[in-house]
């Protein structure tokens, strides 16, 4: 602690005149650490400063009356869990699980239909992936977009969270329906990777919606009408899906820089 400046020096500091910089600086450094000298400064404040402070106090009174009460201390666990999961994902994941359960139920009731679980497996993770990195679903997107750990890392983490829910459900539904596990899971991973790779160019939400629409109209609808599984879901095509997944993941990796911020198309 430095020695206290004289009252006259403090008065001249408060008045804003006459002191050279070296003195002003040492007074300021001292005032920051010394409550007594701050009290003495308050005693020698000018009339114009008092008027100013009264004005500010009135404004504060209105601001406090209008605004929220002091925020509670932030909970410690809230930061890590947001990296992996947003609550907005929950309804989407619930819906995905419900749709897969319906598909499995329908399959056991009408065995003559082509396997609905297999047909829906590729698009199962897409709703969750679309919501994982989107302005509309995450109220904190502005904050998130500004943090160092956002971007592709955040998207991949949340996609991993979605897959961690969807893959076991898919495996269960597939096992219940008696379909090949590889054929259920490989297209699912390929479409998740595809929506991220395409998302680097047009936005993840658009990419997911586009891919899901394409799959439903080009593959699911015709095969339901023709009542047989399409070529791409026959046994033996799993290897092709795995290769496609690896290729799309590679594309996504080279385009990681496109996820630096959440643009309006996300």
């Amino acid at each position: 602690m430095t020695t206290h400046p004289e009252l006259a020096v403090i008065a001249r500091y408060a008045g804003g005149d006459g002191l050279d910089d070296a003195t002003v600086w040492s007074v300021e450094v001292h005032l920051e650490t010394c409550a007594d000298c701050r009290a003495r400064l308050a005693g020698s404040a000018e009339a114009s400063t008092r008027v100013l402070l009264q004005r500010v106090a009135d404004g504060l009174e209105r601001g406090i009356a209008a605004g929220p009460a002091p925020a509670r201390r932030a909970r410690r666990w809230s930061a890590p869990h947001r990296r992996w999961l947003v609550w907005a994902l929950l309804p989407w994941l619930t819906m995905t699980v419900a749709v897969l359960a319906c598909a499995a139920a329908l399959e056991s009731l009408w065995p003559s239909l082509p396997s609905l679980v297999l047909l829906l497996a590729p698009v199962a993770p897409l709703p969750g992936v679309a919501v994982a990195w989107s302005r509309r679903s995450d109220p904190a997107w502005e904050l998130i977009a500004g943090t160092p750990a956002s971007g592709v890392v955040m998207l991949l983490r949340r996609t991993a969270g979605v897959l961690a829910v969807v893959v076991p459900v898919l495996a269960l539904a597939g096992a219940g329906a008696g379909v090949s596990l590889a054929l259920a899971l490989a297209p699912c991973l390929a479409f998740a990777a595809g929506s991220i790779a395409l998302g680097a160019f047009v936005g993840v939400r658009r990419a997911a919606v586009g891919l899901a629409g394409l799959w439903l109209f080009a593959v699911v609808a015709p095969s339901l009408m023709a009542v047989h599984l399409p070529v791409v879901l026959r046994p033996g095509s799993a290897g092709g899906w795995v290769l496609l997944t690896v290729a799309l993941a590679g594309v996504a990796a080279t385009r990681a820089g496109n996820f630096r911020r959440l643009s309006s198309r996300n």
């Binding site: 500091y13 408060a14 804003g16 002003v24 300021e28 005032l31 409550a35 701050r38 009290a39 400064l41 308050a42 404040a45 400063t49 100013l52 402070l53 500010v56 106090a57 504060l60």
Partner: peptide
């Protein structure tokens, strides 16, 4: 506010 605002006001006005 009573304790710190005069100090802060003077410092800002400088």
């Amino acid at each position: 506010y009573r304790r710190t605002s005069p100090w802060l006001a003077v410092r800002l006005r400088r």
